Amino acid sequence: MAGVLLVTGSAGCGSDDARKDGASPAPVGKILADRDQDGRPYREVGREDAPGVGIEVQPDAAGGWDVHLTVRNFRFSPAGAAARPVAGRGLARLFVDDRPVARLRTPGHRLDTRLVPRGTHRVTARLYADDGTVWAVDGKPVESTADITASEPGPGTSPDAASRRTARTQDPLTGGRGSPDRARGAS
């Protein structure tokens, strides 16, 4: 006598908790030989649905700098997230003149004045997967850079008036430069 086994539900590998938030449990992207300055490998993903980031840096009233990131196809993972890559998730690392200064799990951050002395500086936000790999498109890290210039306040000058800000971003998806506002519409 032949038996029939009926199986219902979804098939596949991975835990159900990885699917609750819509994330794929499958491996994501391809690991490249290229690495960032800390030796972290690049994780190449296709242009379609690739994460993106824009950065805006403005002087604040206390003499520091407010940083705001605009992301698309990307969500910040909470602290304690599993150290595995999930499509479009992770954290941002903030660099001033190629020197790491912060790990961000939210789009906002304040840079203290001691991190941005007088002069012109490059502030870069780069996206990382939760396993520490760098999100990359066409062999280039997914990042955005703003150039800022800090000057000393003069007598009777407020910190806002003393600090000038210019910003430009590099969009790895289009290869073009533009204002951070261009990336605001997508998230």
Rank of each mutant, 00 (worst) to 15 (best):
residue 105 R to L: 06
residue 114 R to Y: 09
residue 16 D to N: 09
residue 57 V to Q: 10
residue 25 P to I: 00
residue 4 V to L: 05
residue 36 D to P: 09
residue 152 E to P: 09
residue 127 L to K: 08
residue 8 T to G: 08
residue 100 P to S: 04
residue 4 V to R: 13
residue 77 S to P: 02
residue 182 R to I: 12
residue 137 V to N: 11
residue 95 F to M: 14
residue 33 A to T: 07
residue 158 S to G: 11
residue 21 D to S: 14
residue 164 R to M: 09
residue 171 D to A: 10
residue 186 A to V: 13
residue 15 S to L: 08
residue 180 P to Y: 11
residue 76 F to R: 02
residue 130 D to E: 14
residue 174 T to H: 02
residue 36 D to W: 00
residue 22 G to H: 01
residue 26 A to V: 11
residue 26 A to K: 12
residue 153 P to C: 07
residue 181 D to Q: 14
residue 134 V to Y: 01
residue 32 L to I: 02
residue 50 A to Y: 02
residue 11 A to W: 00
residue 161 A to P: 04
residue 154 G to D: 11
residue 158 S to T: 08
residue 71 V to K: 07
residue 24 S to T: 15
residue 19 R to M: 01
residue 150 A to P: 10
residue 80 G to Q: 00
residue 57 V to H: 02
residue 156 G to P: 04
residue 10 S to M: 10
residue 155 P to I: 08
residue 110 R to I: 13
residue 11 A to R: 05
residue 95 F to V: 11
residue 136 A to I: 13
residue 46 G to T: 12
residue 22 G to K: 02
residue 130 D to A: 04
residue 168 R to C: 07
residue 81 A to Y: 11
residue 131 D to P: 01
residue 15 S to T: 03
residue 168 R to G: 12
residue 62 A to K: 15
residue 148 I to A: 04
residue 72 R to V: 08
residue 112 D to Y: 03
residue 35 R to F: 02
residue 6 L to E: 05
residue 173 L to K: 09
residue 8 T to Y: 01
residue 23 A to S: 15
residue 187 S to E: 12
residue 164 R to C: 01
residue 11 A to T: 04
residue 37 Q to N: 13
residue 12 G to K: 00
residue 106 T to P: 04
residue 43 R to D: 06
residue 13 C to F: 15
residue 29 G to P: 00
residue 33 A to H: 08
residue 178 G to H: 12
